[in-house]
Design a protein around this nucleic acid. Structure first.
Length: 438
RNA sequence: GCGGCCAUAGCUCAGUUGGUUAGAGCACAAGAUUGUGAUUCUUGGGGUCGCGGGUUCGAAUCCCGUUGGCCGCCCCA
């Protein structure tokens, strides 16, 4: 039994698990289509350099990478963003703007599996290309909220924390920090929520302690939780760039509020999203109880298409993972249970009745109904039990008595009423029954 | 990559100071029941006790290693 186990962090999807996964995928697709996004797909295996180019060599430690039989350095995709940038970049001039695309796919990261994190997982990826302004963020964050809220999750269950790398860079520059120091401070900011003051340890070791008033100003910025507080804080700094950025913030928050999503979003500059390729607004979705890993993350990456060989093309995107999202839905009792769900169960008396029933079974199935019947002869009592467990609303009874009369008995399994219909009218009668039901 | 805890049936678990053929509930299957779904009862299949080695007359139990899981660190695109 234990001879051949699945690899660590790789999940096997038995039918009930796959039903739950498919439930996620359906909800995601529904939301994406409602927002006018088009679905695409791309290779699972990519050249290793695609990821090195974006994130540097150190990323290789977290990749499923190897040399293929043709001597190519390849990697299983750890994320969709570089791939979609290549796709869009290659045809950028032929694509209608705005380019709104999504995909659902499996991704692979060579990391230690933990709660909410596996080595193979699925992500719902959504991106908008070609829109430099916050209008794209409004549309995209709206979709992010809908992709979660569509499952019944409300503002009491999750929220989206909004932050801005552009503003951080402006602010830290105004405080007199150079580029290297800025990067170190953002690293500390990223960890501050979890570690408190220890988050600045690495900075202090590399660059010496921050001046007290500089650190106080950084912590004050970290404490900004509203647009009003943000404007008040930045007023003394001044400058055209900052004024323009604040206008973007007003547009973004105003747009999201007008969409009725105000309760779902919070200003929170503790989010900086690693240090990868983000250039502007960044955001992450979390459960309100703070028990789980991030449900989703995203942001603006205006330079990446160009960096990967395409034309300069502004972009903003996000991804939702299936693992944490599934945990959240389970926790909140929002994951349906998926049992067998036939429409019709056919009860069969014996071999003669069986061959009579087969023609009608085929006809019902051709009409799109989900039909089950016992593969082997079973006592009637047993068949009705199985019928009840199959989820069918209707049982068709093919017994000796009925066949002799040229009829089929229909039993409504919900109210246990029965009536007979002529054999030749069975398919129509059943179809009528379900039409009335819907 | 580092540290802590854990591993017995498909699932949840019991298993005495090391001692006969390793158990229960649930689930699954057959029957009681050859024309109507519940309940109940009877019966059955299913385990190299994660794997490998060691100690011992004797190991699910003790020791070492290993693999896997959970949790934390690193990382989180």
């Amino acid at each position: 039994m234990a001879q051949f186990q699945s690899l660590p962090g790789f999940r096997e999807f038995y039918p009930d698990a796959l039903a739950r996964r498919s439930h996620l995928f359906r909800g995601w697709r529904r939301a994406a289509h409602a927002y006018g996004f088009s679905e695409y797909d791309a290779p699972v295996l990519e050249p290793l350099d695609l990821y090195k180019a974006k994130s540097g060599d150190e990323i290789e430690a977290q990749l499923f990478s190897f040399t293929d039989k043709g001597g190519r350095e390849v990697a299983l995709r750890p994320e969709m963003t570089p791939t979609v940038c290549r796709l869009v970049g290659a045809k950028a001039n032929a694509l209608k703007r705005p380019i709104k695309w999504f995909s659902i796919g499996e991704f692979y990261r060579y990391e230690r599996a933990q709660k909410g994190r596996e080595r193979a997982f699925f992500q719902f990826n959504c991106d908008i290309f070609g829109e430099p302004g916050p209008e794209a963020e409004i549309e995209l964050i709206g979709l992010l909220v809908q992709a979660l809220a569509g499952f019944g999750l409300g503002p009491q269950d999750f929220y989206v924390r909004l932050s801005d790398r552009t503003l951080w860079l402006h602010y830290l520059a105004a405080l007199g920090l150079n580029e290297v120091q800025t990067r170190a401070v953002l690293g500390a900011v990223d960890k501050y929520e979890k570690m408190g003051d220890d988050a600045f340890k690495a900075y202090t070791e590399a660059h010496g302690a921050l001046a007290d008033d500089t650190k106080a100003k950084i912590l004050a910025f970290l404490g900004v939780k509203s647009l009003e507080a943000l404007e008040a804080m930045l007023a003394p700094v001044g400058g055209d760039a900052l004024a323009a950025r604040l206008a973007d913030w007003r547009k973004l928050l105003g747009g999201l509020r007008a969409m009725g999503l105000g309760d779902f979003v919070e200003v929170d500059f503790g989010v900086v999203r690693g240090l990868a390729y983000y250039t502007g607004f960044v955001f992450e979705a979390f459960d309100r109880k703070g028990e789980l890993r991030a449900i989703a993350g995203g942001g603006r990456y205006d330079d990446l298409v160009g960096k990967l060989g395409g034309p300069a093309l502004p972009a903003v995107g996000f991804a939702i993972g299936d693992v944490t999202m599934g945990l959240l839905l389970e926790q909140r009792g929002l994951m349906p249970s998926f049992g067998p769900n036939a429409d019709v169960y056919v009860v069969i008396g014996g071999e003669a009745e069986r061959s009579a029933a087969f023609g009608d079974i085929a006809g019902l199935r051709a009409a799109g109904l989900r039909v089950e019947y016992p593969l082997k002869d079973l006592a009637f009592g047993k068949q009705f039990k199985v019928a009840a467990e199959s989820g069918a609303k209707l049982a068709l009874i093919y017994g000796g008595d009925e066949l002799a009369k040229g009829v089929v008995k229909l039993r409504d399994l919900t109210d246990r009423s029965e009536h007979e219909v002529p054999r030749e009218g069975v398919v129509d009668a059943v179809r009528d029954y379900f039409t009335a039901w819907d």
